[in-house]
Computed example of a mutant assay.
Amino acid sequence: MQSNGKHNHLVQLEQIGVKLFQEALKVRVINETTPISKILYDEEMVKAHLSPETLANVPLVSSINSALNRTRRKRTPVLPTSCSFDIIPDL
């Protein structure tokens, strides 16, 4: 979007606020076993103390949900695909 030959970009501070909010959500997704749908998006928004300008640029939960799921899957151990194991040592 252009106006008078200048670009209308988010102010650096607003970009930082949005990134910090997203990172806070990712930390909860990684560290908690709470289902992603139960992690209160609105609660995190309140905790972040974002300005109205920054809040207007925070992505909706529906648009970042897949990224949060992807983040959690990266941290989840892979399930075994077979039940054959190497020799288990005697104790």
Rank of each mutant, 00 (worst) to 15 (best):
residue 13 L to E: 12
residue 59 P to W: 05
residue 17 G to Y: 02
residue 34 T to W: 01
residue 69 N to T: 06
residue 84 S to H: 08
residue 45 M to N: 08
residue 27 V to D: 15
residue 72 R to Q: 06
residue 4 N to E: 15
residue 48 A to S: 15
residue 65 N to A: 11
residue 10 L to K: 03
residue 86 D to I: 11
residue 40 L to D: 15
residue 82 S to K: 00
residue 75 R to E: 10
residue 71 T to F: 03
residue 78 V to I: 12
residue 45 M to Q: 15
residue 7 H to P: 01
residue 14 E to R: 02
residue 73 R to Q: 09
residue 83 C to K: 14
residue 58 V to I: 11
residue 7 H to E: 11
residue 59 P to C: 04
residue 70 R to G: 01
residue 16 I to K: 14
residue 42 D to G: 06
residue 36 I to S: 05
residue 83 C to W: 10
residue 20 L to A: 07
residue 31 N to R: 15
residue 88 I to V: 14
residue 67 A to N: 14
residue 84 S to V: 14
residue 8 N to E: 09
residue 76 T to C: 10
residue 73 R to P: 00
residue 81 T to D: 12
residue 59 P to F: 04
residue 50 L to Q: 06
residue 7 H to T: 09
residue 76 T to K: 14
residue 43 E to K: 13
residue 63 S to H: 12
residue 57 N to D: 06
residue 63 S to I: 14
residue 91 L to I: 12
residue 22 Q to V: 08
residue 14 E to C: 06
residue 77 P to V: 09
residue 49 H to N: 09
residue 14 E to G: 00
residue 63 S to P: 07
residue 39 I to T: 07
residue 31 N to E: 15
residue 66 S to L: 08
residue 53 E to W: 04
residue 8 N to P: 00
residue 54 T to N: 04
residue 12 Q to M: 03
residue 6 K to R: 04
residue 80 P to D: 12
residue 55 L to G: 02
residue 25 L to G: 02
residue 62 S to K: 07
residue 64 I to D: 01
residue 17 G to H: 04
residue 83 C to Y: 13
residue 20 L to T: 04
